[in-house]
């Protein structure tokens, strides 16, 4: 008898605390997005998106910055996707589960995912910039980011492959279809969603990165002529304007608005795709 009212109070308090917490989070997030977009959007124009930065970034646009960003992301994906795909396929389709090698690789990928991005920057600086003599360059920055998003690509691709029913593998094997063809014609198409979602999330993570780039791809705002030129990404541009350029806020806002909206878009698209595929999959299994 006596527990009933106390418990009901507990229930109400919990609900209230939950709503308060959620409201605080939503408010802070909304504040952030609203503030960035409100201040930034007025500065964003076609000229801003295409012009070269001038006066240390206080004037001009972010055209060359966007080019460098895309180049770095391109290098990053060119290294992370093949390597990540190969790793995930091997772990899922070829390796004996629970062998020492599989356990070691999975743990090392888990640990890789935990390495702070600034440490990736240190590593990239020593290995890519100095030992491989790439200097402060788009190539060095892209390679560094490639190492960074590798675990993410492996993880989502692996999950995609694991969601393919075993009957498919057995059916293909019973027809003496080689592993290579099974993979190319049957498994990879079926696991495509995992690959796409992984690549998109990796892309978002790489585009958001700053700390790993300040010692690897550098700060140069000129239009890059090759992958061996230094180039700054949008996120490094924001950092530089915020930290090193007095009265750089206006352009930092505008760049932040562009970056934030692009990343929100990529992430929403990735989640929507993942959701839709998940639904289709459950629909299929209940059929």
């Amino acid at each position: 008898m006596s527990t009933q009212p106390r418990s009901a109070t507990l229930d109400r308090l919990t609900a209230m605390a939950g709503w308060l917490a959620a409201a605080a989070i939503v408010a802070a997030f909304g504040w952030l997005v609203f503030d960035i977009v409100r201040h930034g959007a007025s500065e964003v124009s076609w000229t801003f998106l295409t012009a070269e930065p001038a006066d240390a970034g206080r004037a001009g646009g972010i055209g060359t910055v966007l080019v460098s960003t895309l180049l770095i992301l391109g290098v990053c994906l060119a290294i992370a996707v093949p390597l990540g795909l190969g790793t995930a396929v091997w772990l899922s389709e070829f390796a004996r589960p629970c062998s020492w090698r599989v356990t070691a690789i999975r743990w090392s990928l888990d640990l890789l995912a935990s390495v702070p991005s600034i440490v990736f920057g240190l590593f990239g600086m020593v290995v890519f910039c100095q030992m491989l003599r790439l200097g402060f360059s788009i190539a060095a920055g892209g390679l560094t980011l490639g190492c960074m998003i590798l675990p993410l690509v492996v993880q989502t691709t692996y999950a995609g492959l694991q969601s393919v029913p075993n009957e498919l593998r057995a059916g293909a094997a019973a027809l003496a279809i080689s592993r290579a063809s099974t993979l190319r014609h049957l498994l990879l198409p079926a696991a495509l969603h995992g690959v796409v979602v992984g690549v998109m999330l990796g892309l978002g993570r790489a585009a958001a990165e700053t700390a790993a780039l300040i010692f690897t791809s550098g700060y140069v705002t000129r239009m890059p002529e090759s992958l061996l030129d230094s180039g700054r990404t949008a996120s490094v541009h924001i950092y530089d304007l915020a930290m090193n350029v007095p009265r750089g806020e206006a352009r930092a806002y505008a760049t932040a608005a562009v970056l934030l909206l692009t990343l929100l878009l990529i992430n929403v698209a990735a989640t929507v795709l993942a959701d839709r595929w998940l639904q289709r999959q459950t629909a299929r299994s209940f059929r």
Binding site: E167, L168, A170, G171, A172, A173, A174, L175, A176, H185, L186, P189, A190
Partner: peptide
């Protein structure tokens, strides 16, 4: 496996 074919309990056509 070419000389010994197999048909499974659940029909398993490929998604092609």
């Amino acid at each position: 496996r070419r000389r010994v074919g197999m048909v499974f309990q659940k029909p398993n056509p490929f998604a092609l």
